[in-house]
């Protein structure tokens, strides 16, 4: 028996919004530790890694490890039927071929349930080693989303250049070129507004705008985003989900021939 309850459906809606542009379907691996998902997009350029810890749920029970392959378009249709404030409960029997989403209104007067067929998906897990990155930048998630959106008007690629002075995002194309520099903040009233840079060595890497923009769909989950970079290895874009877990995106860099 698997049962996981969140007091506000809005959290699950935001999690789904953060992954459904990159993935058509994905396997949710459930254990007593929580829910894990790891999947590459179709073109194998990016990877989504989601962790929702069991202690972050309002109720969590998982008697046996369970892998639930879900069509994210179908899941999205179902979650649209929930109000943001509804309690959401996911339930499945052991070895089941369906999962049930139950929504309950705050006043308990409306209860709906939606059963969704599960899919058997090929599991392709990548082993990602623990890495010490040359540069780790933390910045407001809204600012990162704004930068990705603005620069994608100028080119297909963004160059991220990080030194101890700051981080520079650049793009160029037919229109011309654009550069956005962010300095490390000296003092801020609110921690979520800070830009911080931990640098061992400066790095300059090139990434496809399209994927960075897709990652920023996770912005509603977190005030801050963390970018981890080293020369010639994938970028890690991490959003922490308060009291519940995190979503990490890995993006292969573009490299000169």
């Amino acid at each position: 028996m698997f049962e996981a309850r969140l007091n506000a459906a809005t959290t699950l809606k935001k999690v789904l919004d953060a992954i459904k542009d990159l993935l058509n379907e994905a396997t949710f691996d459930c254990s007593d530790a929580g829910i894990q998902l790891q999947a590459m997009d179709n073109s194998h350029v990016s990877l989504v890694s989601l962790t929702l810890r069991s202690d972050g749920f309002d109720k969590f029970r998982c008697d046996r490890n369970l892998s639930m392959g879900m069509n994210l378009g179908s899941m999205s249709k179902i979650l649209k039927c929930a109000n943001n404030e509804d309690t959401v409960t996911m339930k499945a029997q052991d070895n089941a071929d369906t999962v049930t989403f139950m929504f309950e209104s705050q006043n308990h007067e409306k209860v709906s349930d939606y059963e969704m067929k599960l899919m058997n998906l090929d599991q392709e897990h990548l082993g990602i080693p623990e890495t010490d990155y040359s540069c780790v930048v933390r910045m407001p998630a809204m600012e990162f989303a704004r930068i990705c959106r603005d620069l994608s008007q100028f080119g297909e690629s963004v160059i991220i250049c990080c030194t101890k002075e700051g981080v520079k995002f650049s793009a160029s194309g037919d229109v011309g070129s654009a550069n956005i520099k962010l300095a490390q903040t000296s003092s801020v009233d609110k921690e979520e507004e800070a830009v911080t840079i931990e640098m061992q060595e400066p790095v300059s890497l090139t990434f496809a705008c399209r994927y960075l923009n897709a990652f920023t769909k996770a912005t509603p989950l977190s005030n801050q985003v963390q970018l981890s970079m080293s020369a010639d290895v994938p970028l890690v874009v991490e959003y922490r989900i308060p009291d519940l877990g995190h979503i990490r995106y890995y993006l292969a860099p573009k490299i000169e021939e």
């Binding site: 590459m40 194998h44 350029v45 990016s46 990877l47 392709e124 897990h125 990548l126 082993g127 990602i128 080693p129 690629s157 090139t206 496809a208 290895v233 994938p234 890995y250 292969a252 860099p253 573009k254 490299i255 000169e256 021939e257």
Partner: peptide, 14 residues
């Protein structure tokens, strides 16, 4: 122009 790499150039399947 730089070419887009595949993630599997960096990480292997487990």
């Amino acid at each position: 122009t730089p070419i887009q790499n595949d993630l599997q150039e960096f990480y292997s399947l487990v």
